[in-house]
Each structure stands twice: as C-alpha cells, then as structure tokens.
Amino acid sequence: MSSVPRLDLGQDVVALTESLCNIPSVSLAEGPLADALEAALRALPHLSVTRDGDAVVARTELGRAERVVLAGHLDTVPLTDPPNLPVRREGGYLVGRGTTDMKGGVAVQLCLAATLPQPNRDITFVFYDAEEISDEHNGLARLARQHPELLAADFAVLLEPTDDAVEGGCNGNVTALVHTRGRAAHSARPWMGHNAIHDLADVLARIERGQLPDAEVDGLVYRQSLNAVGISGGIAHNVIPDHAVVTVNLRFAPRWDADRAVSYLVDDVFAGLEVEIIDRSAGARPGLQRPAAADFVRALGLPVRAKQGWTDVARFSALGVPAVNFGPGESQFAHADDERCQIAQIVAAQEALTGWLA
C-alpha cells in the first residue's frame, strides 16, 4: 500500500502551491491529493474534518454570527506529453499543470485553514473532486445532494481564477438539439425527397433573430448569447438527407431560472420545431446586497464584474447561499499546455482573504 503524500501547511502559500501541483490529481484520480489534505487538516485541532469520496470538508465551530464557505476543486485536466510537471518558477510565474486551475486557490484555502484558528466568521473549507469532467462526477454536486448541511452558510467564495477581480454570480446554460426531418432520395433525383439539411437555414435564421440583449442583475451586467455550436446530417454523397441536427447553446443571465430559459428556446425561438434539451444549468445571482457579500467586496477593494461563464457558484445559489468567484490566476492560462499563475496573485489573494477574515 502506497504511503500518503505529506503536505506541510507551515510552508508559505507559493511553496504550498508547488507542493499541491506536484501531486498529480487528474479528474477521477484525486485520491492521493485528497488523502494528503485530509491528513494535514486533521492535524489542526481547531477544525472538524469530514471526508466524502475524494472531497474533504473542514469546519471551524466557534459559534460566530456568520459562516462563510471557501471552496475549490482538487482535480486538473490531463497532463501534457511530456508532462507539464513538476512545477517550475519562471519570470514571476509558477508554470505547470494546476497552477491557475486551481491549486493556487486551494493553497490559499489551506494557508487560511492553518493560520486562522480564530477567524471573525466561522469558515467551512470545501475541497472537492471531479469539477473538470461531466456533472455526474462532480464532488460539490454530490455534497449538495447528500450532505447539504455541510454547505450551509451566509456566503460562499469559489477560488477559481478571476484575473485580479471579484466575479459575481454566473450565467446559466442550456444546450439543445434542434432536429429537422426530411425524406431520403437519390441525389440524382432530389425532387423525389426532401432535404433536411436545407431546412437548417430556417433554424440558423431563428438563432440570429433570437439573440438576447445584455441584462443587469443586482447591479452587474451579464452578456447573453445564443449560438449554433454543432451541425450534423447526411449519410452519403449520393443520398438526400432525411435528418439533420443543429446543436444550440444558450447562455442566459441569472434573472431567469433554467425552466424559463428552456421555455424561451422551445416556445419562442424554435416554436413548431422538434427541440431536444440535453443539458440545463441555472445561473447564480451575485447576491452582493447581502451583508456578508457586501463586507467581502468592501474588504477586498477590487473591481466587481459579472461572471460570464458558468461555475459551481450556481450550486451554492441553488442552496440559497449567495456566492462569488475570487481566486489567483488568469483565466487565459487555464487548461493551456503552458498553464501558469502569477506568484504575486497567489500572495495577494491570501493577504486579501486574511484581511477579511482575521
């Protein structure tokens, strides 16, 4: 049986980021890193620790008036060939898999857990698995289903990379298949059939007409978009196709729930057409008017903008917990072969959150 990797929580936050990255944790292979985190956190007497699969939750129990969640995922996308590990320091950056997405943020969480035994709010530290792959594996979703009490809080911060800003809430997301049906025939006698691919012209025109304007929610402006992201149809060069499909993706502001977004596609944009919904995720309102959130923004003094993509803050929103994205790293480097994170951003994130919670 292999030994558990050892994490030294007494390291500075940059060295700890290096240590975390150098324990590979590609999605569904986070076990060794989760073991190391669990062992390190259980050694801190001011925390109660719960393990669920490869997710680890550590909580202070000080009876404070407010509780906040600091959350981050342990997994990374696959390594390159040759592997972009171990991490190296280069020109003010840490370079290697996981530095930006998102072990810099996880290191900040761990440093706070080790250095703040008496925070001014109770803190729940959540380290979860399988964020980078399909939703069925997501460790935060599993915790929300099976142990929602562990995620109960007044406010949550997801430490994804945010480019030196606070990103409030997130857009929702619906993916649909729009089918057109025709009648097959030989391509030399097209008048004997009906070309389903030609009918896609109407679908594409509807997408253009169905674009939504930007929308303001809780003082932040979210960009909305409707796009064709895939087209398929036809079986051979000499056959008039009897079936074609456009894959459509809608990104919508969190003023709507997922049901309203689906209704917009089915009843408005593609009314009368065959529409199959294959994925739907609600967005998250930023909730910046809540006292804990407003204090967070004041304490950090950083720009606040809307999160234009979808992130796991939506899972907190579904539990009634307002949430923002804030963490070290530049999103342009996430998943890149030369993934990297500015050392100064990792240090600044730790200092900002310490100032808020100390």
Rank of each mutant, 00 (worst) to 15 (best):
V26M: 11
E38A: 11
A43D: 15
P45G: 10
P45K: 00
D52C: 06
V56L: 02
E61S: 15
V69L: 07
L74P: 07
R88Y: 07
R89L: 00
Y93T: 03
T100L: 00
V106I: 12
V108P: 06
L116A: 10
P117R: 02
Q118K: 09
N120T: 08
R121S: 10
Y128V: 06
L140A: 08
R142V: 02
A144W: 14
Q146G: 06
A152G: 06
V157D: 04
T162K: 00
V166P: 05
G172C: 02
A176V: 15
H186Q: 07
G193E: 06
D214A: 15
A215R: 15
Y222I: 02
L226Y: 09
V229T: 15
G230C: 13
I235D: 13
I235A: 07
P241L: 01
T247S: 15
L250Q: 12
F252N: 07
D259F: 03
S263W: 04
S263T: 11
F270I: 09
L273P: 02
I278A: 03
P286E: 14
P291S: 01
A293Q: 08
R298I: 07
L300G: 09
R305A: 10
W310G: 07
D312W: 05
V313A: 13
F333T: 02
I343W: 10
L357E: 06
